[in-house]
Design a protein around this nucleic acid. Structure first.
Lengths: 141, 141
DNA sequence: GCAATTTTGTTGTATATACACTTATTTTAT
DNA sequence: ATAAAATAAGTGTATATACAACAAAATTGC
């Protein structure tokens, strides 16, 4: 005889990787969103700022690749950041391409927000333990 | 003297928990979305179906709590699932509340999609190793 | 050298999500 | 018993995200 739907669903819900990962993602993202909110900055924007900062200069497609984002997502998020004048657009020889770099304002914003980021990091590790080990397989740049 | 922005950003990008977690979340979610797409089912919908199934019957606010979702998010996602007739709405004595249960169609859908889910689980573990340990702290129900 | 393919970025559209606010109902305190 | 507080669900609005389709430019193969 088949197991009952309820038992089966319970088993699935306990072992489902994507369900747990997404829940963890929502909870952890909320911690960082709260810390960044006073700066008018979102987590997605922070991640892009840092990635651009780490590259010095990077094209949207490069950012999409290293962050596993759709190019259209990068496009639209950068749009807002450009409107805030946090990033500069640098034309290239290849006329399809342009690169992005932090503006002075963008660099200042990063410096300003880093203490809040450190608090979020601490809060997260305190709540969830060392996620870092698990996440070490997720590389950037 | 201050470290250069580039070095600092690189350091942050390497140690930032939320950045890595979100990237992992996007990548893993994409695996499951691909597996569920042939069934016209999204990951968010699958997670709700399974959670409802595991509860037998659950209110939106209960689902929001156990999945760490905003009630408004649950509301809107359930709306579509109800339109598909995957879930039934069960009125309660407390007139503010209602509960949700899987319909026959919903149960059939879960049964149908489980093989695809197992493939996604395997694919994910093969690519990322045993995330399960890390995610064991993320509990449901 | 040029047609076919690939690459880059953008736009249209849809889902997932959160926050602030609203409405209806229930519970609580006095 | 009733006014005040709390709870449940839904709406308005905004961001994050993906996929499909597009246009422009570059690369490739012959």
């Amino acid at each position: 005889m088949a197991i009952s739907m309820e038992m089966q669903a319970l088993e699935v819900s306990k072992s489902c990787i994507v369900a747990r990962l997404r829940k963890l993602n929502r909870e952890v993202s909320a911690i960082y969103e709260d810390c960044f909110r006073p700066f008018g900055l979102t987590v997605a924007q922070f991640n892009l700022l840092i990635s651009i900062g780490a590259h010095g200069e990077a094209s949207p497609s490069r950012l999409a690749k290293v962050l596993s984002l759709e190019k259209s997502t990068v496009s639209r998020n950068i749009e807002k950041m450009h409107a805030h004048k946090w990033v500069e657009v640098i034309p290239q020889g290849d006329k399809r391409v342009h690169t992005l770099a932090l503006s002075d304002i963008g660099e200042k914003l990063v410096e300003e927000v880093l203490p809040a980021w450190r608090i979020a990091q601490q809060k997260t590790e305190k709540t969830y333990g060392p996620l870092t080990d698990l996440l070490n397989k997720v590389t950037f740049v």
